[in-house]
Computed example of a mutant assay.
Amino acid sequence: MHDLKGKSILITGASTGIGAAAARAFGRYGANVAVHYNSSKDQAEEVAKDVRALGVSAITVGADVRDSKAIAAVVAQTVDAFGKIDVLINNAGSLVKREPLESATDELFDDVININARSVVVFTRAALPSLRSGGGGSIINVTSVAARNGGGPGALLYAASKGFVSTITKGMAKEFAADRIRVNAVAPGVIGTPFHDRFSTPEQLEGFRKSIPMGYIGEADDCSGAFLYLASEAMSRYVTGQIIDVNGGQLMP
């Protein structure tokens, strides 16, 4: 994956968890990284500091992904800093809260959809001019095992929003192929990150663990290889419209 050296990578939701692990992984391969965050500015700065320590450039860019103007500003700041965007990773997302459908409010629905689904559309739309002007590149969306199995307790809105991400990944792959932009997705299973610290009880996590053939909860860096592979033209130039599952065998489509 030598071709990642000098590439410019924008990762949304990169201050913690899977996004933070991916940012550090790209730094190890010589890529420059824009670390997007919403409220976790200090954590984002730590990630960027770690990336810079690897001898490459890193910036932090803050925005609420429910705000289209703020998203456009993030993309503009990344292009200003690096001159271009070669790889966009739409990783930002949240379950928001576990809630049965019968008591889910319109406000909860809007939040879940805007954070997980609409943000993918808006970030992609904003980054397209840079990707096109650079002669192509890679977009990697982050979906979830929940998109295939309906999600855990109280997570059906989240699962449905990730189903949208999985489907639009395939549509984007078709629409942008002529621009030499490959579009794929990574679908994590149960990964030990602040996401589950916030939304899952120890009992729920143990139940999830028992459903995983490999017998343990994944770590954030377990997803990094999939991002690196899909970002590398040398490794995956003929791969588009695909979803790579990283779930320890919990679901085998």
Rank of each mutant, 00 (worst) to 15 (best):
L4V: 12
K5M: 05
G6P: 07
G6Y: 06
K7C: 11
I9A: 08
I11W: 06
G17N: 13
A21N: 09
A23Q: 12
F26P: 07
G27C: 07
R28G: 13
Y29S: 09
G30F: 14
A31F: 10
N38I: 05
S39N: 09
K41Y: 00
K41F: 00
E46L: 14
V47L: 12
A48L: 00
K49H: 07
K49A: 11
L54K: 12
V56F: 03
V56G: 05
S57N: 15
V61Y: 06
A73D: 13
V75D: 07
Q77R: 15
V79Y: 12
D80T: 15
F82Y: 12
K84E: 07
G93H: 04
S94I: 03
K97N: 02
P100A: 04
L101D: 02
E102I: 11
S103G: 02
A104R: 00
D106S: 09
E107S: 08
D111S: 14
I115S: 03
R118Y: 06
R118F: 00
S119D: 01
S119M: 00
V120E: 01
V122D: 02
F123N: 01
A126L: 07
S130P: 10
L131W: 10
L131H: 10
L131S: 05
R132K: 15
G134D: 05
G134K: 14
G135H: 14
G136Q: 07
G137E: 02
